[in-house]
Each structure stands twice: as structure tokens, then as C-alpha cells.
Design a protein around this nucleic acid. Structure first.
Lengths: 335, 335
DNA sequence: CTGAAAGCGCTAACAG
DNA sequence: CTGTTAGCGCTTTCAG
């Protein structure tokens, strides 16, 4: 295994110059740099990460804390962040925290300590203690989908977006609008469901509709949960003519229940989702599109800002957009 | 920032003993270990990753090379691998290679060099040069979903599983069976599509059915591709009564096309997918289930075997299973 | 089982 | 712009 000394010798420079040349520092003549680079190529030399890291104090790695790596939303955010970070020469280390135990272990042991130069946290609303633990790391932190004092974040306006969804329904004449939501309390203490519910309530209020607790069905952000939640609404003496599902996955489940019950979509019941999941088009689901890859990219950029001592934006709110497809339509003529 | 010296001093041992105690080596008395651990806890000390890595030559990290982080299959494999590796104290570093350029850059520059203790490669059929580059790393490598000489792999039997899918259709009396497949050549040179196609051909042969090129529609493993591919089959003078989609995502697209064309499922056309995607249940799709999380877990275990100098299995083939749902049924009475 | 001391292979400060 | 040199903070012999 060649060392930087071998490279330096072959290029007839000192190890310091070799190091500078290989790292692309400006204080090296083009000629010297070329010689060093050629020597490195010939010897098939790369700077060993650990030695460089020990000497410089940097790890060139970013940790990403994520509840569910396998879910579309998180995978897409990760992909966006990874691309930007890789471009900047940073590695992405994944820390999955699928349940409360894993999360507690993460914040307790803080395996990112002395291990990464920055941390990205996806969707987890931090407790005061968790936020404090991250701040104590003394490395840049960026949140996606949640906020905390003094920590930059990237997110969407869930309340406004949900209201936009429900307004689409009221605009179509619907008055009895169901909500497919999250359990209470939500897993991980997620705050997104609450915000989306508030958007639902706001849009109802705007339309002068009295909210009806019976029209809210909880379950979770999965298709299976959406399926059973929709079944409950359908069993109501007077079922809704439209439902707002807090996630597209739930909406998919709801569509299944409706189809199986031979309920016309959107003739009898309209369904709107949230996310613009990659399969929403295939299911012809009207939904609120949120920019997911972009959230990962922007979060990575905020991290880079901080790593380069540029002041980062404190709170980036990306836009959402109604995507009209076939699952929503005018309310059935008033009964 | 406390160092191991501070811990050693406080525990009244040498730094060597402190190091041994903190790493859980057996050659330390329980008493000494307890003293050291208490001192470390009091000082809030953790072994700095880079110093440890430089001194020991190990990085305690595993690299995972993956084409599409955001797709369900890959995200699920990553989650499975990450859980096992984390348990073993290893970090997972993600290397996304969504396109040929990124892939070339990865194998050219080999950013994993001197950076990880082992590498996991997902679904990429390695060229001879790529396999050689990985071997030259001199670290354990495990493949998921592809194979290469001398590199352990975890996978399913795509041919058998696809044949199983198509046999399900022939068993239901179908004789005109369409195939929704991948483009030729497939992206990344994926070999999975070819194997699944061979399974399709085998099952047809078993049933004495002459394959018909017109019944094969290519497009890619996405819902959008499945949608248009299905439309092409439907436009045939004599369309199939059943289709085998190489992935559930394609099957979802096919279902959309069929529904929109008001073709009865399965009354007029049966659809079977492949994967048992998390949304397959919501779409009532009959499919071949493959154990995805388990593939990630097993791959991680094979890595651990190698890292601990245990001979790993060379080729682990996990089982698949037919999951009957509502999208397949008996062939329409012979015309 | 424990300690002393020699690296691991760079990077950064300083000097020129 | 380039060279010298002193660490970075552990882990690992080698002794005892």
C-alpha cells in the first residue's frame, strides 16, 4: 500500500506539497500539481480517509437520521441529499431509527459523535433533550420536515397544503368530508399529522362547514391503515362524499376499500391524497404534490453552507401544488 | 474534549488498559472494566472514530452501492442491511449510482477505497473490470441480486419464480399470456429481466404454448412503463387474457390501463406481478413475493462472516412464494 | 491481566 | 510556493 511519502518521493516534492496538491489547495503551481497527480495515479494512491481525518479533524461524512429508510418519502429525500453531498465530496452515513427503542439508543449513545461533520434529521420532531444532544455535538444540523429553535430546517407548509387539498373538495361542492389520519399519539410524536389536520379544519371553517368528529378516521400513514379507516367511514349512517387522506399511501388503501364496496370514484366518493407518491399517477389519484427530492437537496445545501461558514437559511419552506387526477369530482347532487 | 488519557487517569489504569476495557476485549478484569467504563461515562467520553481507525486499520464502516435509493426494493434491502450492521457496530455508507455516469465514476475513482471494511452491491451485474476493481479492494464484498465469480451473493431464483408466476396463469387456463418487461438492453445491464423472461418462456413451454413475440411488451420496471406497455398489448388484434409483469410497479401501471379501458380484472384479463410490493395488497394484486428485507439482512450477515474470518456461504438463494389476490382468475371461456 | 512505548499516515503551523 | 516537523489520539506489540 503506497503512502504519501512514496508519492512525494516520486514527484520529487515534500509530503506536505504532495498533500496540498492532492487536496486541490490553490497554493501549488500547476506544474507541481500535475507531477504529484501523475505520481499518485501511477502508484494508484488515494489519501487514506482515516489518517486524513485524524490529522485534519474532519471526517468528510454526514449522518442522516431517518425513521423508515424503506418508505418512498424517506428514500427519495435520502437520494436527493446523497447526490448533493457526494458531489461535494461528502459521504452519507445512514442511521435508521424505526422505533422508539432505536431512537432512544441513537440519542443516548449518539453514534454520530466524533464520527460525522454534520447531521441531517428527517421528520423527527425533536424533544428538547434530543435537540440539546444534537447541539452539543457542535456540528451543523439540519432538519427536514420538523423544526427546532436555532436549527435550520427544510419543509413544506403542511397546514396550507392540507387546506388546499380540502378546499379543492369544498370547491367541488362537497360538504361531508372525511379525514384519514394518524393515530393519536402518532408514532415518533410526528407533528405532520396534526398540522395537516389543522389544515383540514381550516378549510372546513372557510367553507362554513361544521367539523364532525365521526368523519375523522385514524390509523397511520400506510395503505393498510387507509383501507380500514375508509371502511369505517363507509359504515357510517351518513358516509362522507369525499375524503382527504393525509398520505397517498393511505389514499391507495382507501381506493381499495371503495372499489371493493363498489362505490363509484369519484361519482359517489372523491378521494384526495397528499405527497404525489410515484404511484399516484398509476392510481389516478388527485393529490397535493410536495417536492421530495428537492427537500433532500436543499437540506444538503444548508449543511454545506454551514460547513463552509456561510450563514444558512434558517427555515426553507418549499411549495406544494394540487395535482388534479381522476379520483376527485363534483359532489353528488345534494340529497 | 476528553481523551483516553483522561479516562485512563481517572480510572487509574494505563491508556492501553482503558482502550481494551472500552472495546470490550476479554483480557480485562470485570473490576477494571467497570472502573474504566464509569470514568468514560463521567467524562462523557467516546472513542474517536478516526483515531481508532488509523491505529487499528479498520473503519467499522460498510459501503453499499445502490442504483436507486428511493425505490421500494432498494430502500427495503438497505433497511434490512443497516439494522444488522448497526447491531454489529458497523456504519453504513451509501453510494448511489443512478446512471451509467455515476456508476463509471464510482468504479473509476472507487471512493470506498481505504474508506470501508466491506462492500455491498445491490442488483448491479458487475462487468469483469468492475468485479476485478472490487476484488482489488481486498475487503469482503457481497452481491445482492447478481452473481460474480468468487464473490458471495444473496438472491432469489428469478427464473423459477417467474415460471411459478406464469404457471399460476396457465393453471387457470390462460393460453395467451403477455409479458411486461424491461427495455433491451436494460439499464445498468440488469440481468434480472432476462432471467424472469426465461422463466416466462419455460412455463409457456411446459404448458405447450408457443411463445409469441408480439405478446412481449418492453418498457422498464416502473408503473409508467407498465401502463404504456399494457396499452400496447391491449391494442393487439388478439390481446392476451393474462399478463405477467416483471415487477409489481409495472403491474400497477397495467392495472390502471385496464381499468381505464374498462377491461374486467380478472374477468377479461388477469394480471400477476412480482415482488409483493408494500402496495400490492392495496391494489389486490396477485404476485410472487420475494423476501426483500431478508436479502439485506442475509447479505449483511455474509459480510460479518467474512469480517470475522468465518467462511461465508457462496450463494444464498432465498425462497419466493405465490400470493394469490384478486387480480388473477380463470381464463375467459375459450373463444 | 496490565503497562510502556512505538507507530498508524496524514495535515497544519511555521519558516523560508 | 514549498519544505520541516510536530502532532492528531488511538491501538498494538512486547514485556512483565
Amino acid at each position: 500500500m503506497p503512502s504519501i511519502r512514496d508519492v512525494a518521493r516520486q514527484a520529487q516534492v515534500s509530503t506536505a506539497t504532495a498533500s496540498r496538491a492532492l487536496r486541490g489547495l490553490p497554493s501549488v503551481t500547476a506544474q507541481t500539481r500535475a507531477r504529484v497527480e501523475r505520481a499518485a495515479a501511477e502508484l494508484d494512491y488515494v489519501i487514506p480517509f482515516n489518517a486524513s481525518s485524524l490529522a485534519s479533524g474532519r471526517t468528510n461524512s454526514v449522518g442522516i437520521v431517518v425513521p423508515y429508510v424503506s418508505r418512498w418519502f424517506f428514500g427519495t429525500v435520502i437520494a436527493g441529499a446523497e447526490a448533493v453531498l457526494r458531489e461535494a465530496g461528502l459521504d452519507l452515513v445512514v442511521y435508521g431509527v424505526p422505533d422508539a427503542a432505536a431512537r432512544a439508543r441513537f440519542f443516548d449513545r449518539l453514534p454520530v459523535r466524533r464520527r460525522v461533520d454534520a447531521v441531517l434529521v428527517l421528520s423527527l420532531p425533536l424533544t428538547a433533550a434530543e435537540a440539546e444532544a444534537l447541539r452539543a455535538l457542535r456540528v451543523p444540523v439540519v432538519l427536514v420536515g420538523s423544526t427546532a429553535d436555532g436549527i435550520p430546517s427544510v419543509r413544506i407548509d403542511d397546514l396550507a397544503a392540507a387546506a388546499q387539498a380540502v378546499r379543492h373538495l369544498t370547491g367541488l361542492g362537497h360538504r361531508r368530508i372525511g379525514l384519514l389520519g394518524e393515530t393519536d399519539p402518532p408514532p415518533h410524536g410526528f407533528t405532520t399529522p396534526g398540522r395537516r389536520r389543522n389544515g383540514y379544519l381550516r378549510a372546513l371553517a372557510e367553507a362554513g362547514i361544521e367539523p364532525e368528529p365521526a368523519l375523522e378516521a385514524a390509523g397511520g400513514f400506510t395503505a393498510a391503515a387507509g383501507e380500514t379507516a375508509m371502511a369505517r367511514l363507509l359504515a357510517l349512517p351518513s358516509p362522507p362524499t369525499a375524503v382527504f387522506a393525509m398520505s397517498d399511501e393511505m389514499a391507495f388503501g382507501a381506493l381499495k376499500t371503495l372499489r371493493r364496496a363498489r362505490v363509484g370514484i369519484p361519482a359517489e366518493v372523491s378521494v384526495i391524497g397528499f405527497d404525489d407518491h410515484e404511484l399516484a399517477g398509476a392510481l389516478d389519484l388527485t393529490t397535493i404534490a410536495q417536492p421530495v427530492t428537492a427537500q433532500g437537496e436543499r437540506a444538503a445545501l444548508l449543511l454545506l453552507d454551514q460547513l463552509h461558514d456561510r450563514p444558512p437559511a434558517t427555515d426553507v419552506v418549499l411549495g406544494t401544488e394540487l395535482v388534479r387526477r381522476g379520483s376527485t369530482g363534483p359532489a353528488p347532487a345534494a340529497r
